[in-house]
Design a protein around this nucleic acid. Sequence first.
DNA 1: AATAAATTACCTCCTAAGAGGTATTTTGTT
DNA 2: AACAAAATACCTCTTAGGAGGTAATTTATT
Lengths: 213, 213
Amino acid sequence: MSLTTNPIKILLVDDHQLFNDGLKSLLSTEQNLEIVGQVYESRNVLYEIQRLNPQLIFLDINLPEQNGIELSKIILKDFQNVKIIFLTMYADEQMLKEAKKLEVHGYILKNSSKKELLLGIETVMNGKQYFDAKIHKSAQDESNKDDLSKKFALTEREKEIIAYVKAGLDSYQIADKMSLSYLTIKTHRRNIHFKLGTTSTPELIRFANENSL
Amino acid sequence: MSLTTNPIKILLVDDHQLFNDGLKSLLSTEQNLEIVGQVYESRNVLYEIQRLNPQLIFLDINLPEQNGIELSKIILKDFQNVKIIFLTMYADEQMLKEAKKLEVHGYILKNSSKKELLLGIETVMNGKQYFDAKIHKSAQDESNKDDLSKKFALTEREKEIIAYVKAGLDSYQIADKMSLSYLTIKTHRRNIHFKLGTTSTPELIRFANENSL
DNA sequence: AATAAATTACCTCCTAAGAGGTATTTTGTT
DNA sequence: AACAAAATACCTCTTAGGAGGTAATTTATT
């Protein structure tokens, strides 16, 4: 059957040339796959999709300029018949959540085997979603992080605000960005301090950096 | 000549199986190289070196348990005839400095080409050190940082205070630590803001972090 | 010895942030 | 439908930080 069907046209997107080329080399022995192109810089992705018309894209998340998350939003919107599988080293919940929210077709970790990769391709090309089993495992590892998160029990909103605070914005600017009242931001900040046991913005920033919140 | 000499025996150490296998695949066409082994977990590295007796190790820095830096210390001590080339995504000065301090034989970025990799192998096997050209660029970025420091012309005292601010201390605490008047700290902070073009503590911290001040 | 640079220190004024309390609405879960 | 959790919003009060100006003392550097 695989002899009669056309090979699946795949585009590889990863800024690490050695990984990108190595992956191509690794997949080149597969008869039913064809690497139609390789992209090393995010700015070339959309153009190459249009030019090469791939059916499936392996997309790295951590790209220098425009990251994979941002890119996938555009691709999903503009090229609706193209499947996207994130191929990333990030095994953390945040990324996984993001990916699932985006309704991307797959999420595979770089510490996977070729076999798993092929399984992922097959699954996704059959119209299903594929999320790396190790991520579910690491979803348990997240219980570590969840321990932290649960301990401090930061809500989504609070995490968002912490990000803005780390970026150097004051409460007025944050309120503006989030289209909320300045007073609401103040309340959130107070709650954050309470949860984390911090008493000032510099302390909070330090804490957030040290615990990579 | 390469027909008469034995191929260089190489061990690949990287927890990302896809990268590791891809790299093997990529190098498998080279007649004068032989991938004698692949290690995915840092705890197996020393045993595999002993067992396989490689001449050259490609070592990832960012390994889960024991990282590449730690590992290389042991390897350099216990297997003095083995060459080590870091193969990493980190292009920052800190890592480079670390590597140079360790007197490791090479440092190549993952966003390199096969050609560069082969050049690195050749250079190192000829007894020289090889540091990725792209890192020298980032080494120039260091001079940017020096430029930055000069541009912003921060004095010793100012840098000290920035460190305390980053640590989350307020001006009173800093004054106490430095045995100075609170008012003096305020003056220094004002001067720092003036020099860096910042207007608030969070901004300052962000700036300092981004420019590793 | 003279000059520049760095460090120390104080004053006033204004505003953002922290501390404390309260309350409504929205969202999610059983 | 009922309840808990999260998000939104306001009030008052106090204090630390930022903006402006000024100046004495110490340390380099010529």
